[in-house]
Nucleic acid binder design. Structure first.
Lengths: 222, 222
DNA sequence: GAGATTACATACATTCATGGATGTTTGCAA
DNA sequence: TTGCAAACATCCATGAATGTATGTAATCTC
């Protein structure tokens, strides 16, 4: 086929990403050939290999369209100082879930990431990006938690690291399960109640750092 | 090769499952050929096709070895009456996580299920079993929650359905994330603190059923 | 406006997985 | 103890996916 203009080329790139999103979601990443992606976009493999090095590169770009904005959101909230850090954390979490429920593209991509994809050697680069993004998310959560401790919103001996990990797991779990069966309940409507439940748990019974005194009380087990 | 005795045959079947567990975990389900599974077990594809119809059948059997006992555990606790239902729920959750941390086979299988497998048409039967097991789990959690409401451990207007879903999501999230990076923290040691956080949230701020009065207060939107 | 390059399509060679057919012992039942 | 079927191994034909190489027309640049 003939050469297209630059903007047309950018459009076909987006079209390829859109097509990949659909086909990956229907058949799974490993089970779809790049020919199938091309066909779904009304193109040929030549177009795919022109715009992307291979399937991993395509998949990475596809994820980036959704995860980059989300990471930016988390980083922006986590990087700021707040008068009410716990409220900021709550809002951040609810926004994340609401976004997932409202944004069809985010919905699709998370469906692929959670249920239609194998994180193996082929996608090693994607795995690394995913893991570092996850670390960044936990770090930012922990920043907010530390502010909350400083503001006396949380117990002074709160284990902020473990609390952040737990919160991250909670969010991932909600997304994972909702995406698996979005018809089960209306996430947009329940998001705040779910997050409030978790935040209340954080206030009432956060994980505690093991103090020297506590360690003496339950010394060795052997 | 010659015919083996019945117990020998059962042993090779187990060997095939063990091998599949290893190879699936390393390469992902879709990315591993049945030849690779056979080779890892020191056998040939003939053995695989003798014991299992296809890859889905093999994968299903592999999952069943760990999920069936777990489902039985949940059903047994969920089916009984308890003087302290919330404590029973707490113990159940902690046991689940502890089991995951201690049982290498459970660890491996959940790693495959969460991160090394695509739930597509090829594994349709597995998906259905998974979903129904999930429903059963939520049902049993909700049974305990209803008992907790009856015993005044939880607010009378608790939305037990949503609470059960939230708890299920929480558990899945913790497992999902820990399995992804088990070196990050010692789940066996943190399990109780993580579960306690959630249960405290349940007591302090459970999701509420929308009463008629509440619906009147926030009537229609557009 | 002429060449260099872009944005694809097409063709090709290679590799690999699958399923089925077939072979071969040998345990087990009558 | 004979005969059947279990418990695999081996072989083959087929199809499909990948990466690369090449073709080609239009577009951008100078």
């Amino acid at each position: 086929m003939a050469r297209r203009t630059k903007i047309e080329a950018a459009a076909t790139r987006e079209a390829l990403l859109d097509a990949a999103e659909r086909v990956f979601r229907e058949q799974g990443v490993a089970h779809t050939s790049l020919a199938a992606v091309a066909e779904a976009a009304g193109l040929t493999r030549g177009a795919v290999y022109w715009h992307f090095r291979d399937k991993a590169d395509l998949f990475e770009a596809l994820c980036a369209r959704v995860t980059l904005p989300m990471e930016a959101m988390v980083a922006s909230v986590g990087g700021a100082r707040h008068d009410d850090p716990l409220a900021a954390l709550r809002t951040l979490a609810i926004d994340g879930l609401t976004r997932l429920a409202a944004d069809a593209r985010a919905h699709a991509v998370f469906d692929v990431i959670f249920h239609k994809c194998e994180f193996t050697a082929e996608l090693a680069t994607v795995v690394e990006r995913q893991k570092s993004a996850d670390r960044g998310c936990r770090t930012n959560i922990e920043r907010l938690l530390k502010q909350a401790v400083a503001r006396r919103q949380l117990a002074p001996d709160t284990d902020t690291r473990l609390a952040a990990t737990t919160m991250n797991s909670f969010m991932v779990g909600v997304m994972h399960q909702w995406v698996q069966d979005p018809a089960a309940y209306d996430l947009a409507r329940t998001a705040s109640a779910m997050v409030d439940l978790f935040v209340a748990g954080l206030r009432a019974c956060p994980p505690r750092r093991k103090t020297a005194a506590a360690r003496r009380r339950t010394p060795a087990r052997a």
